[in-house]
Design a protein around this nucleic acid. Structure first.
Lengths: 195, 195
DNA sequence: GGAAAACGATGAACTATCTTAAGAAAAACA
DNA sequence: TGTTTTTCTTAAGATAGTTCATCGTTTTCC
């Protein structure tokens, strides 16, 4: 039996749910263990689940025409992820969601989520807040991509998620920050030399 | 008196509202006329309004440390905009929202929106859908920035919004597409030569 | 525990995109 | 309508970031 308290904390941090609604919500999620390198979502298949990370690490990525991998999103403990476009619109995914470590997740399927949203205002509000915060977060990321150099984006990421950086493969971080793995390697090394 | 039917269409396209809720919703919006170059939102001030464009064109932008302007978002007829981070979290804005043409907008203030969201499930669902679609849209934009070259991003934009392109100043489009105005000019001209 | 695979570092050559500058065209506005 | 201001074009030189190829290191997994 997994400890769901981080999940419940996460929810409480967004909005106050009645005990019945919290019960209803948690009952809609299922605990799943996932092995490193396992794919939760694949292009061509509809993303069935919204995922909350209880333990472990994931990244979502696309592969472009030239065969290059681009990490779109990371998620470690207490983060949510999915292929947003696929999940929301229930259309075929374009992204992979892959475990970077052996992990434990909570997942809810789209239909169950719809039922919760339709059940009452409190639960609808929860998902509303999640969507609003996602949008605000994505908007910040776009601004940072438009205004910062590669090195600045890296520094920002390190400052924001110092403990996360060390768990991520460098090639995935590089592509998330919109640069090549080689260039990230150079940035890091220039930094070391300066010290 | 302005014709609100495009707005009502826009809402109906998202979710079905009862006549009473539609009435309540429209009553919460105010029609405002805006002159070209007028600013609706400015850094340092909390974004009070969520904006729907009835007529005209806007862009939101930031100014970076070097004094360069970066367009974050465009909005023409039937589009929504604001400084999302500022509006959602009611914190000081970092973006400008400026009219590119003389325009007519509908605006709702944050407090009124909160009251609508709390009023009933139908109205909460409307804002939920808006937030989800924003998030999905922003996610697509991030993918396109990560995977495409400057020229590809331009081609994609033209293909998606052919009529809009002609109304936007080229310098604003260039910065939206994450390139300099000079480089966009070059791309366009190379294209003409090829023909 | 050791072979195989994946990952990270480094350097040299290359290129997409930027910078700067100046003039032409278009739009604004008085 | 003419004048001023803003926007767009062009081109040459500069650079941030890429590509490619190689090698050492770490991780994986049988």
């Amino acid at each position: 039996m997994e400890d769901l308290s981080p999940f419940i904390e996460n929810i409480n941090h967004k909005t106050r749910l009645s005990p019945e609604n919290m019960e209803r919500l948690t009952a809609a999620f299922r605990v799943v263990k996932v092995k490193r390198k396992q794919l939760l979502i694949q292009p061509g298949f509809v993303a069935k689940y919204r995922i909350y990370v209880l333990k472990g690490a994931f990244h979502s990525y696309v592969i472009d025409d030239k065969g290059n991998e681009h990490t779109i999103q990371f998620a470690v403990e207490d983060w949510w992820l999915s292929d947003y476009n696929s999940y929301i619109h229930q259309t075929p995914a374009t992204q992979f969601v892959e475990a970077l470590e052996n992990s434990i997740i909570l997942q809810i399927d789209h239909q169950a989520e719809q039922q919760l949203k339709e059940a009452n205002l409190e639960l609808a509000t929860l998902f509303l807040l999640m969507a609003e915060r996602s949008a605000a977060y994505l908007a910040r990321r776009i601004v940072s991509n438009l205004t910062q150099s590669a090195e600045e984006r890296y520094n920002e990421f390190v400052a924001k998620y110092p403990q996360v950086v060390q768990r991520l493969p460098q090639y995935a971080l590089a592509s998330y920050l919109n640069m090549t793995r080689e260039f990230l390697s150079k940035i890091r090394n220039d930094k070391v030399r300066k010290k």
